[in-house]
């Protein structure tokens, strides 16, 4: 971490790790020995698998409504039935099926958002770190500007302007959440940019794009993956907040944030309607965070707490 960054950038980069090349073997040994990482990875893998196999594992059509069978409690309740293991929602749709399809939406939003924001942030960060000087000043100022914008508010306003939809939410979040990528890749690139092999590459006349692609990017991959993981959790939470406020994903899509939002009306008398998606969301975010934290510990052992 450079000493000269403004407080704002520091706050954004709290969780960033110094770059370090790590051998595959240390990585594997490290991961296996890291309880949090393993637990997170298993839960995350399970959720991803279920989401991918949604049409195979979902017991019902998540959109098929039956108003005569509304708000059936989950199976552990005395009034529950095995036909709807997690009960039904306010329109009589199978809750388990909606939850399973909802995982797809949340994961899709998380991963595509990170793809967009990661590309933007890495481009900015690498340029700033590699070229330094004026370029760095301009790009740092860009990051500072982005941090000055209240993220939830700007996301809500932009979602309202582009029209609330799945694509809209992804684009808005992707264009907003690149700051941490930029901060982390900038610091990582700075450290490598001064190294001998970069100087050597320059000396033999490698073009700048080539140096960036073949020398820098592979070497900042570790911190990049860590940030991507943590930002994915961030994006999923923000989508949930947007949907909760009514400007995110729109019905009848079953996003978990939307399910919580729709369930809150029933939270006093049918609490499972809100508890089930909330617990699912917490598990997903927790798993992703554990993986992210674990990866950081494993790839940058000197930063391990």
């Amino acid at each position: 971490m450079s000493e000269t960054l403004p407080s704002a950038l520091k706050a954004a980069s709290l969780d960033q790790a110094p770059p370090r090349r790590s051998a595959l073997s240390t990585f594997l040994v490290g991961s296996l020995g890291h309880g949090g990482l393993m637990a997170g990875a298993i839960v995350l893998a399970a959720i991803v698998l279920i989401a991918l196999a949604a049409p195979l594992v979902a017991p019902h059509d998540p959109y098929a409504q039956n108003l005569a069978r509304r708000l059936i409690p989950p199976v552990w309740d005395a009034r529950g039935t095995w036909d709807h293991i997690l009960g039904t929602d306010k329109l009589g749709r199978d809750y388990l099926s909606r939850l399973i399809y909802g995982a797809r939406i949340s994961l899709l939003i998380g991963s595509v958002t990170v793809l967009i924001s990661g590309t933007i942030g890495t481009a900015i960060g690498v340029c700033a770190g590699y070229f330094g000087g004026r370029v760095d000043a301009v790009l740092s100022y860009l990051v500072t500007t982005r941090l000055a914008l209240p993220v939830v508010l700007v996301a809500l306003a932009s979602a309202a302007l582009v029209g609330s939809s799945l694509q809209g939410v992804i684009v808005v979040l992707g264009l907003l959440l690149w700051d941490r990528f930029a901060v982390v890749t900038r610091a990582a690139t700075q450290q490598i940019a001064g190294s001998d092999y970069i100087a050597a590459a320059k000396a033999i006349g490698c073009s700048t794009p080539r140096i960036v692609l073949t020398e820098i990017l592979p070497n900042i991959l570790n911190p990049l993956i860590v940030v991507a993981t943590l930002e994915m959790a961030h994006a999923i939470l923000l989508e949930a907040a947007l949907s909760f406020l009514g400007l995110g994903v729109q019905p009848p899509l079953p996003s978990w944030g939307l399910m919580i939002s729709e369930g809150k009306q029933y939270m006093f008398f049918s609490p499972w309607v809100i508890a089930i998606p909330a617990v699912a969301l917490v598990f997903l975010v927790l798993a992703i965070n554990l993986v992210g934290d674990g990866l950081r510990d494993v790839t940058a052992p000197e930063n391990r707490n």
Partner: peptide
């Protein structure tokens, strides 16, 4: 303390708010 942090980060503000209300 660290686990508390990781767990804390995973709970969406609105879920916590609703739980507090209940």
């Amino acid at each position: 303390a660290l686990s508390f942090c990781v767990l804390g980060q995973a709970i969406p503000t609105f879920c916590l708010g609703l739980a507090l209300i209940i």
